[in-house]
């Protein structure tokens, strides 16, 4: 009796979950795939190999790649700081790390323009006078992308560091390992998979970022351009030009492949 009720409610939950994921994820992604496929291989190839598209992909790679690297370095650093040390303001820092998730990317972009904008930004004007442009240029796009993806590495790594505690590092220390040896031999292998997952999420988030990048980039296509792949998709949709589905599909594919690769190679949670 009890097991039958249990089975029934489990099946019910399964149906709800499947419907939910289907309606929100599978159908929209499926439609994009379908539209791309229907337009054929030739349309796909010409859409993603046009000079504008190639430039946009290149820029996306540069911006996302830089943002991910920055977020790996600072994410691991901040995670170590939050889990290994006690200092005043620790809780404030922990809350601030989550701000990028709750603030709309458009607002982030606007805030960056106010601070770094070349005309009246706090730091922007002196920097502009010194010949450094941040807003309406690649550095600003990297900054915006880094900002929106900031919590992803930290939030993956912190729980693992908390779970594992400090003892392995202390044991290594007593055995003679210096700080760099401890990090390389103990800490890094411990957080390896959490870090990999954080990186994949950061990559997916970074290549998909639109709002903040749109505000700070100026969306200039052509030479010295600031048009990333997502901005290109937006332009194609706005102007009812072909190519939006194909470029979108490439972006989706990169994110999905990254997630699949990590979940395949990530070892099963073993019992300790």
């Amino acid at each position: 009796m009890a097991s039958r009720v249990g089975r029934r409610s489990r099946n019910g939950l399964r149906v709800v979950a499947v419907l939910y994921v289907t309606a929100l994820v599978l159908v929209p992604l499926g439609v994009i795939t379908w539209r791309t496929v229907r337009q054929g291989g030739h349309a796909f190839w010409s859409a993603i190999s046009s000079a504008q598209a190639v430039e946009a992909f290149r820029l996306t790679a540069i911006v996302a790649g830089s943002a991910v690297v920055i977020n790996i370095v600072f994410g691991v650093g901040v995670a170590l700081l939050l889990t290994r040390y006690h200092f005043p303001g620790k809780r404030v820092l922990s809350v601030l790390i989550d701000v990028p998730i709750s603030v709309s990317p458009i607002v982030v972009g606007l805030a960056l323009v106010l601070v770094y904008g070349p005309n009246n930004g706090w730091f922007g004007l002196p920097l502009h006078n010194a010949g450094v442009d941040i807003i309406y240029a690649v550095p600003g796009m990297i900054l915006a992308t880094t900002f929106v993806a900031l919590p992803l590495v930290v939030r993956e790594v912190v729980p693992v560091l908390e779970d594992e505690g400090f003892e392995q590092e202390q044991a290594a220390r007593v055995l003679g390992a210096g700080a760099i040896q401890r990090f390389r031999r103990i800490t890094l292998p411990t957080i390896k998979w959490a870090l990999a997952y954080g990186v994949v999420l950061s990559i997916a988030r970074s290549i998909g970022e639109f709002g903040a990048v749109k505000v700070v980039s100026g969306n200039i296509s052509g030479s010295g351009q600031t048009q990333t792949a997502t901005l290109l998709v937006d332009e194609r949709v706005e102007q009812l030009e072909p190519g939006a589905y194909q470029v979108s599909l490439v972006l989706i594919a990169v994110a999905v492949i990254a997630i699949i690769v990590v979940s395949v190679i990530r070892p099963k949670e073993n019992v300790s």
Binding site: E164, E167, Q168, Q170, A171, A172, R173, V174, G176, S272
Partner: peptide, 17 residues
């Protein structure tokens, strides 16, 4: 600690997993 050349054994083993 890394230069004291002592051996330390922890309650929860601190095994390098």
């Amino acid at each position: 600690a890394q230069r004291r050349n002592v051996g330390f054994v922890f309650q929860h083993y601190a095994a390098f997993k």
